[in-house]
Simulated assay, not measured.
Amino acid sequence: MNFSSLLRQHWAALRALLVLTVIVGIGYPLFIWLVAQIPGLKDNADGSIVEVNGKPVGSSLIGQLFTDDKGNPLPQYFQSRPSAAGNGYDPLSTSASNLGPESIVDTPGDPSLPADSNGYKASLLTLVCSRSKAVGDLDGVDGKRPFCTGDGVGAVLSVIGPRDSTGNVVHPTKVVSVNEPCTTTQRPFLDIYEGVRVECAKFGEDYTVGQIVPVKGAAPDPAVPADAVTASGSGLDPNISPAYADLQIARVAKARGVSADQVRQLVAENTDGRTLGFLGEPRVNVLELNIALDKKYSNKS
């Protein structure tokens, strides 16, 4: 290949690069930006930023926490659903917990290490149980759920003993409440199981040799709705169900010194129906509702 031929090939490649740079690097982004400025699309394209007195306070598309500097819920505000995105609603760490319905046994922590770094990991069941108890305590309702202990952990036993041909233990010799460590001063949630005294779990022991048995218990149908105890797939859901909003009305009304009916009316005004009348479920945007509360009923707590 002579020099002139090589030069022509490189010049053709350079021209292709320049053309594609203009089209893909400048023209296409500019076209998309112009489309995004069409009325009806502009708000979403700009991030759906919500402002109060000219200052941005959040996005209507991304949830946020309404807690104090110690992580305690502020009683004068409606609370969002849980989030598994970073430390909560972090757009740079959007994710789910990736825990499924079979996640019922906690990973125990080393009692010799600090609680925040001992390796403990709660199962999905225990997360649901603890959140339900916390919501119940905060909003003055019964936070008990089936398959949960009174202390808010998964009610799960490891039943050890000889098994039949189907794999079920027929004569238990040892029964352990796997999600209740022996560091607690309380007895396990169940005293006796099939004639065997229930023990609490000890760190370092392997209870997978036993048959894992979740215990439903006698708890009624949950008063705390599902979205109050489970995170969304993205961890950024800004909405809660009308049922969860209704659960919080009495607390918010008391904290603001107004009647429950006044707050209930504001909730109704900030409840959106199904998209296009049939997609999804009715929902309440927590940030917009709390802003409406601050505008109409200033915080008196």
Results as ranks from 00 to 15, higher is better:
Ser4Asp: 13
Ser5Ala: 14
Leu7Ile: 13
Leu18Met: 14
Val19Trp: 12
Val19His: 04
Val22Leu: 15
Ile23Pro: 04
Leu30Asn: 05
Val35Asp: 08
Ala36Trp: 06
Ile38His: 12
Val52Gln: 14
Asn53Cys: 01
Gly54Pro: 04
Gly54Asn: 10
Gly58His: 01
Ser60Arg: 12
Ile62Arg: 00
Gly63Lys: 00
Phe66Asn: 10
Gly71Ile: 08
Pro73Tyr: 13
Leu74Arg: 15
Arg81Ala: 13
Tyr89Pro: 01
Ser93Phe: 08
Ser97Lys: 02
Val105Ser: 05
Asp106Arg: 08
Pro111Trp: 01
Ser112Pro: 01
Asn118Asp: 15
Gly119His: 08
Tyr120Pro: 05
Lys121Tyr: 03
Ala122Thr: 05
Ala122Gly: 10
Ser123Lys: 05
Leu125Ala: 15
Leu138Pro: 02
Gly140Trp: 09
Gly140Arg: 10
Val141Asp: 08
Gly143Tyr: 01
Arg145Val: 07
Phe147Asp: 14
Thr149Asp: 10
Gly150Leu: 13
Asp151Met: 14
Asp151Ala: 14
Val153Met: 08
Val156Pro: 00
Ser158Met: 06
Val169Trp: 04
Thr173Gly: 12
Lys174Pro: 00
Pro181Ala: 06
Arg187Tyr: 00
Tyr193Gln: 04
Tyr193Pro: 00
Glu199Met: 07
Ala201Ser: 15
Phe203Asn: 03
Tyr207Glu: 13
Gly210Leu: 02
Gln211His: 08
Val213Gly: 05
Val215Met: 14
Lys216Phe: 01
Gly217Ala: 08
Ala218Met: 05
Ala219Tyr: 13
Ala223Asp: 12
Val224Glu: 02
Pro225Tyr: 10
Ala226Lys: 15
Ala231Ile: 01
Ala231His: 00
Ser232Trp: 03
Asn239Gln: 07
Asn239Gly: 02
Asn239Ala: 05
Arg251Trp: 10
Ala253Phe: 05
Lys254Gly: 08
Ser259Asn: 06
Val263Cys: 06
Arg264Leu: 04
Thr271Tyr: 07
Glu281Arg: 14
Pro282Val: 08
Val284Asp: 03
Asn285Met: 09
Val286Trp: 00
Glu288Pro: 02
Asn290Gly: 05
Ile291Asn: 12
